[in-house]
């Protein structure tokens, strides 16, 4: 049994209520859509890439608190990162929300608050949707991302 506050930590509630980087980048270098057909969560990511670095990143769309907070925290964490660094963070975040083992969360910063998701298996997809969307945008996928 898990306390519901493990999942809905204060930072998550805050980022859901006031999502950061929640806007459209009209002249984005890359855009990518993510969709969770089971629950209807839908988001669009906008990226500006400058010399191999993510110079600006934003998102819009609708979703549950977990998916909105995850996208808000992710976009905050990604600003200024190189594409390689972004991919490493993607892999580390994936471990954070799916593996049973304790992992080193120092380098994840605020993203570590999403660790509680792994105790709520039905919600892992909510937290990971924006990350898969980012991953697809970075590797140059053409098709929108779906969690199914």
């Amino acid at each position: 049994m898990f306390d519901i506050k493990d999942l809905y930590q204060e930072i998550i509630v805050d980022h859901n209520r006031n999502p950061r980087n929640f806007r459209v980048i009209a002249d984005a270098d890359k855009t990518m859509e993510g969709f969770n057909p089971l629950c209807g969560d839908r988001l669009k990511l906008y990226l500006k890439i400058d010399g191999g670095n993510i110079s600006d990143i934003a998102f819009d769309g609708t979703g549950c608190a977990i998916s909105v907070a995850s996208a808000s925290l992710m976009t905050d964490a990604m600003k200024g990162k190189s594409i390689d660094e972004a991919e490493t963070l993607f892999n580390n975040f994936h471990c954070l929300i799916t593996t049973e083992n304790e992992i080193d969360t120092d380098h994840l910063g605020k993203l570590a608050v999403l660790a509680g998701v792994k105790n709520f298996p039905a919600r892992v997809k909510c937290a990971s949707l924006c990350w898969h969307t980012l991953h697809s945008a970075l590797i140059g996928d053409k098709n929108p991302v779906t969690t199914e």
């Binding site: 519901i4 809905y8 969560d41 979703g63 549950c64 608190a65 977990i66």
Partner: peptide, 9 residues
Amino acid sequence: IHPHDIGTI
């Protein structure tokens, strides 16, 4: 509050 958050709580 999104319905999925309600469902989890």
